[in-house]
Structures are given as structure tokens and as C-alpha cells.
């Protein structure tokens, strides 16, 4: 459904109980199929936006709509269902060390109560997308950093999310491998998945020329298409 809005944040303010205000009146709309870099210095509010999207936090003011649903007014029992619309990867991969690649990826479907047969089909498909078919039966400890991150990406994709969030996905990887991961994310985006990537990696952002949303002190200070990491005047 091209043109549909996957994410809409309207006037979102987030103040933590300790008094720190992480976001101030943020408006952000991400249409279906978009690829968005979320940039800005540490403490600018990138992590808070991600926490709001996975409903780990609730906005103090304003609306966060994911696929049309108001995350601020969600029943506790509906939270898992909304989280299944999101796939997320982190800097530290968060793989289960005692499970094989295949099981780590399948885990995301298993915990939703999917059938074994469906799981196997979906896992094979997504392992092909990230290029890990050959490593399916290895443990995370036997993989390189890049392969571990690709496993995490496969796990985040296996349930066909509406929005794919990458929180500093290249933070622990060397430049060469970082590029492979970015290429993979671009490919996933070409397959039709909406991608939101929070990063410090200026080189990558500038080279890829996608939409850039820059945060500073909890405000969006720039939102440009085909943009670089830093403002180009």
C-alpha cells in the first residue's frame, strides 16, 4: 500500500520522571516504503523515539500512531501484537547464545504461537534474504560480528514487520562490515519494508543520500530528502 502512513508522531513531548525532557513537540511522519536516517548527538532523543515506538515508554504529551494505532492508548494485552508490527535490531545484536542461527530467527515466530511448518518456511526465506543459509546451524559464538548482526536482522524481518528499526546497527562493526549491513538494509527497503535507522555514522548517511531526520535537544532541527549527515548549505 504505497503512500500509506506507517508512523505518525504528532506534538510528542517526553519528560522522564527524573525531570529530564527528552523530546519537545516532535512531529514526524514516515510513509510506507520510506528509508529514514535518524541522526543527532547522544542524548538528542533518538533512543527515546525508539522506546516510544516499541511502547517501552509512553509519551507525556502528543500522539504516536503506528499503522494507525495510538500507542498511548493501548491495552496491555495488545502491546505484543503491536510489537509484532515492528522489527528491531540493536548495536549489541541481542542474540540468544545457546540457540543456533535458525532457532534464534525462528524464536520471533515461535513466541507468537506460529506452527512449526510456517516457521521453517519463513526462516528459510529470511535467511536467504540476509545470506546466512549456510550458517543456519551455527551458534552466535561461531559467527563474525557482521553475521551476528545479519542474524538479528533476519529475526527482525521474519514476521514481516510494517516498520524495521535499526538502532546503531553498525556501532560495533568495522567500516567494511558496516557497509555490508547498510547494503542489506537498503535491499530490505527495496523489498518494500519501511526502515528507520538511528545512527552516528556520518559517512554512511552522507553516501547513501536518503531522508535524514536530525534531532538536537529533543527537537527535530532538520528533515530533508536525499540529504547528508550534516547540514549542507
Amino acid at each position: 500500500m504505497p503512500g500509506r502512513i506507517v508512523l505518525a508522531m504528532q506534538g510528542v513531548t517526553k519528560a522522564y520522571p527524573n525531570g529530564r525532557v527528552a523530546l519537545r513537540g516532535v512531529d514526524l511522519t514516515i510513509p510506507d516504503g520510506d528509508f529514514v536516517f535518524l541522526v543527532g548527538p547522544s542524548g538528542a532523543g533518538k533512543s527515546t523515539i525508539i522506546k516510544l515506538l516499541i511502547r517501552d515508554e509512553l509519551p507525556t504529551k502528543g500522539l504516536v500512531l503506528l499503522d494507525g494505532r495510538d500507542l498511548g492508548r493501548l491495552n496491555r494485552r495488545d502491546v505484543p501484537k503491536v510489537r509484532r508490527k515492528i522489527g528491531i535490531v540493536f548495536q549489541d545484536f541481542k542474540l540468544l547464545p545457546n540457540m543456533t542461527v535458525r532457532d534464534n530467527v525462528g524464536f520471533a515466530l515461535e513466541v507468537t504461537g506460529a506452527r512449526r511448518r510456517e516457521i521453517d518456511v519463513a526462516v528459510d526465506r529470511v535467511l536467504r534474504v540476509v545470506g546466512l543459509t549456510g550458517q543456519a546451524d551455527q551458534l552466535p559464538s561461531q559467527l563474525s560480528g557482521g553475521e551476528q548482526q545479519r542474524t538479528a536482522i533476519a529475526r527482525a524481518l521474519v514476521h514481516n514487520p510494517r516498520l524495521f528499526i535499526a538502532d546503531e546497527p553498525t556501532g560495533n562493526l568495522d567500516p567494511m562490515i558496516s557497509w555490508e549491513i547498510i547494503q542489506l538494509l537498503l535491499r530490505i527497503n527495496e523489498l518494500g519494508v519501511t526502515v528507520l535507522m538511528a545512527t552516528h555514522n556520518a559517512e554512511v548517511v552522507t553516501a547513501v543520500r536518503k531522508r535524514v531526520v536530525a534531532l538536537e535537544n529533543g527537537r527535530i532541527v532538520r528533515d530533508e530528502s536525499d540529504a547528508a549527515y550534516h547540514r549542507e548549505d
Binding site: 494485552r77 505484543p80 509484532r84 524464536f107 513466541v111 507468537t112
Partner: peptide, 17 residues
């Protein structure tokens, strides 16, 4: 707790956790 966090992130319901 890592395992629980991962389960929450991939959308496991409370019962599954």
C-alpha cells in the same frame, strides 16, 4: 533477563514469556 527482553521485543505475549 536478556532472554525475557528479547521475547518482549519480538512481540511475545506475557503468557509466552
Amino acid at each position: 533477563s536478556d532472554e525475557i527482553e528479547i521475547m518482549r521485543l519480538v512481540g511475545a505475549s506475557d503468557a509466552f514469556i
